[in-house]
Structure formats: structure tokens, C-alpha cells
Amino acid sequence: MIDIQNLHFAYKKKKVFTGLSLKLQPGHIYGLLGKNGTGKSTLLRNIAGMLFPDQGKINVLNYTPGERKPAFLQEVFMVPEELYFPDIPLEQLLKYYAPFYPRFDREQFERYITEFEIPRDNSFLRMSYGQKKKVLISFGLASNAAVLLMDEPTNGLDIMSKSQFRKVMAGSLDDNKCIIISTHQVKDLENLIDRITIIDQGHILFDQTIEAITRKLSFRISFDSEEVRDALYSESSLRGNAIITANTEGEESKLDLELLYKAIILKRESIESVFNR
């Protein structure tokens, strides 16, 4: 569905990607994680055709994004971090903007709007940032575009909204859709994504499915000092020591995304060694 080959990209002299390659398949929600300024938004914009690669190729549904053909734009919807929607009421948004998306489902949109508790008669100007974001997310999901790109979608959402967001997202995935969520708030994506891609300094540090991660790694709280010492990664917390160990017994544990993220950033080699076994 999305095939990125040897992507090179730079903002004038500041190199962001130097040969990044990545393949993304439909039917998954991908979590694109990384520190600020590592190129997550740049990657999404390259996929959306808003930026053009300096070198390399991007293929999205057999289209070259940079050409921005209407058929491509119908299939790719982006929810940017800094969003803009014209100051019109929701009804007008549906009347004038939705027809551009041939598979737009009004009922679906209404359902999401209800779920997010968005007042229907408000125009965009009167909405809070979080409400605007929720409308845009609802619109993107209801457009039924094959590729949905979300850049920091939980920024500006309150605790309840984040929970609503996870619920809505979990129910919206089907076999034909590919959803990519870029964020540095890793906790917000727990129980939502099924593949994690971590970018750092223009390279992919880590790219695994949740299923593979939970099969190979074990996440738990430990009070055993020996176990803590032998762990792939450990971190002291109020409850004890949060550790990651190799899952040799095939036990089930709850993935701690934030812990994993820190482990990959700080102890990448030891984590990788488990996956290379």
C-alpha cells in the first residue's frame, strides 16, 4: 500500500532522511514514534504529497504522492498537528467538502460527532482546538480514505477525549485502511496500534508488530534486584522497578509502550538482540 524506498529529504541544509525505506500494509494502525524534530511530520507530509523527496521513491496505492492527483487525494486524508478548516458550520462542511470523497459516509460522521460530543450548530471559529481536531478526525475517518495520516492527533485533547479517540479509532479500522499515527505521547496509543515504527535522526530505529513485541518481550514490575540487574531495560518507579526482559516462557504481559520506547532509545542493542535471535 505504501512503499518508501531510499527516501532522502532535507530542509535546505538540514538533512532529515538519508535513505529511509519502509513498507506499510492495509489493515493496520501504525504508530510512528520518535522525539521532537526527528522527521515524523516530514515523513507524513512526504506520504501525503505535501513535500517532495530529494531522492528516492514513494509509492502510495500506485500513485506518486507529489503529483497530487485527485484520485490520490481522495484516498489519503491527513489530520495535521496544526489544523485549519474554514469557518463554516458543520452542515456546510458536509455539503461542500464531503462530496470530494466518493466513499464519504454521513452516518458514520454523525456517529463520530456524537461520540466526541461536538455541538452541531457551531462553526469552526467557535470551536475549541480540541473540538476542531475531533471534527477533523471524524471527517477523515468518515471519508473512508484508504490511508489516514494523523500527526499528533491527541495533542490538545483532554483525558476523556483521548479515551473517546482510542475507542473511535479502534472501531474504524478495516482490512482496506492503513492508519498511521505519529506521536511523541506514546501512552496515548497503547491498546490502539498494532505496529510500532520508531524514527530517530532520519532512520528507522525499530519496526515491529505489537504481536511480535509481546511474544518476544515481557513487561512487568519487579522487586527482585537480580532480575532488575539482568533485565534488558529497567526503570525504578513508585510501584517498584518496571523492567523489560526477554519473554522466554511465552508468558503474556501488558505492553508498556512508554517503557519500550525509552528502552529502544537508550538500550537499543539489547532490545534488538532479542528480535534477532
Binding site: 485527485p70 486524508f77 496544526e82
Partner: peptide, 18 residues
């Protein structure tokens, strides 16, 4: 001239010619 507005404008599913 503004990033979010430009993104909205360019991502509307219509051709550059239109």
C-alpha cells in the same frame, strides 16, 4: 502562505488545473 491553510488547500481532491 500559511502551513495549515496551504495543506488544506492542496489536499482538496481536485487537480492543480481545476
Amino acid at each position: 502562505s500559511s502551513g495549515p491553510r496551504a495543506m488544506h488547500f492542496l489536499s482538496v481532491p481536485a487537480s492543480h488545473f481545476e
